[in-house]
Nucleic acid binder design. Structure first.
Length: 362
DNA sequence: AATGCGGGGCC
DNA sequence: GGCCCAGCATT
């Protein structure tokens, strides 16, 4: 950077003019900044805002969050995705309450000892809440830097990441407003230096941008191609017992949708028909037989690494004794109690469909 | 160094 | 349908 002070001035004056009023920017206490940063990991601002507001009403401080049952925190997180974040959030709140006397760790290194807090989140909290001069490198900033310095290397490579962290630290050097600097860099990436069709003509730091000078901005950042995502077929069952209760099961605490509840489901093997898949799933994983299966609806859903089409059936308990194998827990619940459990997107669609349509069985 | 982990918005 | 997103933890 040939004139660092001029770059910082241009960036901050632009930020001062356009910065939006996000809820976490009002009285940025460590708790509020940390909570917002945890939610904002891999998640867009507009998605986070309603969750952040609700969370803050329910858990106004770190002690309130630490004292809450995990199931309740997961329910508040329902729909936000990457549910390990919610578990880490809860664990970190308990660590802060019991081990740190209710105060947040005060350095980047100490912040990183909290579960779910890596280098980015630690630096964001330290700079925004504590005014410390430390760079925050996220997906937006990576894109901005890859254009500012016309980085030709694949930005997903560890060596390139290391270089990008160094470039980010270089830009924040001697800054008097590091929190605003980091937020300005991210906002620039979100609003101007966008993934597709960057608005270089309204960019406050256009004159500093090597990619703009070379005309290569559309080709930055350079990323490796991802392998195609597989498509799986599944079957899920809404099974009712004699009391009109429905069977739900809790997914393993580790892994995909960890700790969330679902209508028991299994993957169809080969060209296995969904009804057979469902009978097999309930027999093998829950120890029960099901009967009178009727197709209810089809749900499609895309995860990061694969996509699924789920055939959802309703049916009745026919016999056997409930004995969950892969599921840590399962339970018969009445429909008016089902809202207390946290589900993933697919099962929320099933519940919505069932409740709009009405229950045919009774 | 590579992989797994959600869901929404955009094109 | 693919890409992207205020990344982190695990192996």
């Amino acid at each position: 950077m040939h004139d660092l002070a001029a770059f910082q001035t241009a960036l901050l004056s632009w930020f001062g003019a356009v910065s939006a009023a996000f809820p976490w920017r009002e009285s940025p206490s460590p708790y509020r900044v940390w909570l917002s940063e945890m939610m904002l990991q891999q998640t867009q601002v507009t998605t986070v805002i309603p969750y952040f507001t609700r969370f803050l009403e329910r858990y106004p401080n770190v002690q309130a969050l630490a004292a809450a049952p995990l199931d309740e925190v997961l329910k508040a997180w329902e729909g936000l995705g990457y549910y390990t974040r919610a578990r880490n959030l809860h664990r970190a709140a308990q660590m802060i309450s019991t081990q740190h006397g209710g105060n947040f760790p005060q350095t980047v290194e100490a912040l990183q000892t909290l579960p779910g807090v890596g280098r980015y989140t630690a630096s964001a909290v330290a700079s925004i809440a504590f005014g410390m001069r430390t760079a925050a490198l996220d997906g937006n900033v990576i894109r901005v830097l890859s254009r500012l310095y016309d980085v030709v290397e694949d930005v997903s490579l560890p060596a390139t990441q290391k270089r990008l962290w160094g470039l980010a630290e270089g830009l924040i050097k001697d800054s008097t407003r590091p929190g605003d600097h980091n937020q300005a860099m991210m906002e620039l990436g979100r609003e101007v230096c966008k993934p597709r069709k960057p608005d270089c003509l309204k960019c406050p730091v256009q004159s500093f941008c090597q990619a703009f000078q070379q005309g290569t901005q559309a080709a930055r950042p350079v990323k490796a191609l991802k392998p195609p995502t597989p498509h799986y077929h599944m079957a899920a069952g809404v099974i009712t017992n004699e009391q009109g209760q429905v069977l739900i099961a809790q997914r393993p605490l580790e892994g995909l949708l960890g700790g969330l509840w679902e209508f028991p489901a299994g993957r169809c093997e080969g060209s296995e028909p969904p009804e057979s898949c469902l009978e097999r799933t309930f027999r093998q994983r829950l120890g029960i037989r099901v009967e009178e299966l009727h197709h209810l609806l089809q749900v499609k859903h895309a995860f990061t690494h694969f996509r699924i089409t789920v055939q959802v059936f309703e049916g009745r308990l026919a016999g056997g004794s409930l004995n969950p194998q892969d599921y840590p827990a399962c339970q018969w619940v009445s429909w008016d109690q089902i809202g207390r459990f946290a589900f993933g997107k697919v099962d929320r669609k099933v519940i919505d469909h069932w409740q709009t349509r009405g229950n045919r069985l009774w």
